[in-house]
């Protein structure tokens, strides 16, 4: 893989996003850089307010332009996202990059049938007759394993169950064979038995289509299920990046470690869960230095002076922390690893 060094599908460099209002300026993303190779699944893990969704939406330029300041560089395929005209961006949306949302009920148009919505997207981006587009819609519904797809083609979003709606949403997102799929917590609202079906299907489709996928989630279990690479975000920065096994089994950043130990997962019943104390910083007034330092049990004085540089914790595994060694020492040995 290293020898061929193919060009990454997505390259984001020093992305900064802030939202400006009369009351305050919220720095949601503060210098995020990452790459996604073609056919790779990157999971961005983070809690609410970490900037994971904002980062992903920036790739589609979905933020209200008048109140958002975006800086940095974003490239997807051959498109320089921030340099595109609004018109060119509309061609990119749906065709090159498409997105699956958490709540398909709000993302699908309630007054059109599922078939109409897929066919319309196909016609808009690829042209062709309505009939051919409908045939394609049927094919797509088959692909995402919607039972009795002929009937569902004529169904309105509210007539479908949550799981079927999300499948329809995915079919819509895949309708123009995008090279990059953005997924914003697409399974969070689903029941566990349905969630696993959708995750397995997404993984299979991703391999079939050879798409790059950026998958945003707060659930470490979901990341373990679907990711190749994982980026952990905190207060608008990626604080750890690496392969899914490295990050989840051998975390190098105290926040990742804290997330892992506070995820309820077979702990003994009488012991307290090792929770991270405190809550995330105020994005309107970020402290200098590492934003996690006030909550960190490994923190040393230099942590609050300047944001720690990114340090390698292994091959293709990096963390922004001065205390990687100490964190490594505290990682519980995995019985199954």
């Amino acid at each position: 893989m290293g020898a061929m060094a193919p060009r990454p599908l997505v390259e984001v460099r020093d992305l900064q996003v802030s939202f400006v209002s009369r009351e305050a300026t919220v720095s949601a993303v503060n210098g995020v850089s990452f790459t996604v190779m073609p056919g790779e699944v990157l999971c961005i893990i983070g809690e609410s307010g970490s900037g994971k969704t904002v980062t992903m939406r920036s790739l589609l330029r979905l933020h209200p332009p008048r109140r958002t300041v975006i800086r940095g560089h974003m490239r997807v395929g051959d498109h320089d996202i921030l340099a595109l005209s609004e018109r060119a961006m509309n061609q990119v949306r749906g065709a090159v990059i498409s997105m699956v949302f958490q709540e398909p009920m709000t993302a699908l148009d309630p007054v059109y049938t599922i078939g109409d919505q897929i066919a319309e997207t196909v016609i808009r981006h690829e042209g062709g007759s309505r009939r051919a587009a409908m045939a394609r819609a049927l094919e797509l519904l088959n692909l995402v394993k919607v039972p009795s797809p002929e009937r569902r083609l004529r169904a309105y979003p509210h007539e479908l169950s949550g799981g079927l709606r999300q499948r329809a949403m995915i079919a819509l997102a895949l309708s123009c064979r995008p090279s990059l799929l953005l997924a914003d917590e697409p399974t969070t609202a689903l029941d566990a038995t349905v969630q696993i079906q959708v995750l397995i299907m997404l993984r299979r489709l991703q391999e079939e289509f050879g798409m790059g996928v950026i998958f945003v989630t707060h659930d470490l279990g979901v990341a373990a299920q679907i990711a190749d690479k994982v980026a952990v975000m905190y207060a608008g920065r990626i604080i750890e990046y690496g392969s899914v096994a490295d990050v989840l089994l051998r975390p190098a950043h105290p926040y990742t470690l804290g997330l892992l130990s506070s995820t309820v997962h077979g702990q003994t019943r009488d012991a307290e869960i090792e929770a991270i104390p405190g809550s995330p910083p105020d994005l309107r007034a970020l402290p200098p230095g590492c934003s996690f330092a006030p909550r960190c049990r490994f923190a040393v004085p230099p942590c609050t002076a300047a944001f720690p540089p990114t340090a390698l914790a292994g091959l293709d595994h990096a963390a922004s922390c001065l205390q990687i060694e100490a964190v490594r020492g505290a990682v519980p040995a995995h019985a199954d690893a």
Binding site: P277, G278, S279, P287, P294, R295, A299, T304
Partner: peptide, 23 residues
């Protein structure tokens, strides 16, 4: 740990746990 933002040593005081640094 330095800085006025640090609320309390973690887990030392259960009551302080929920109080976020910024408050």
């Amino acid at each position: 740990m330095s800085g006025a933002l640090v609320e309390a040593p973690p887990a030392a005081d259960a009551r302080a746990q929920g109080v976020p640094a910024r408050e």
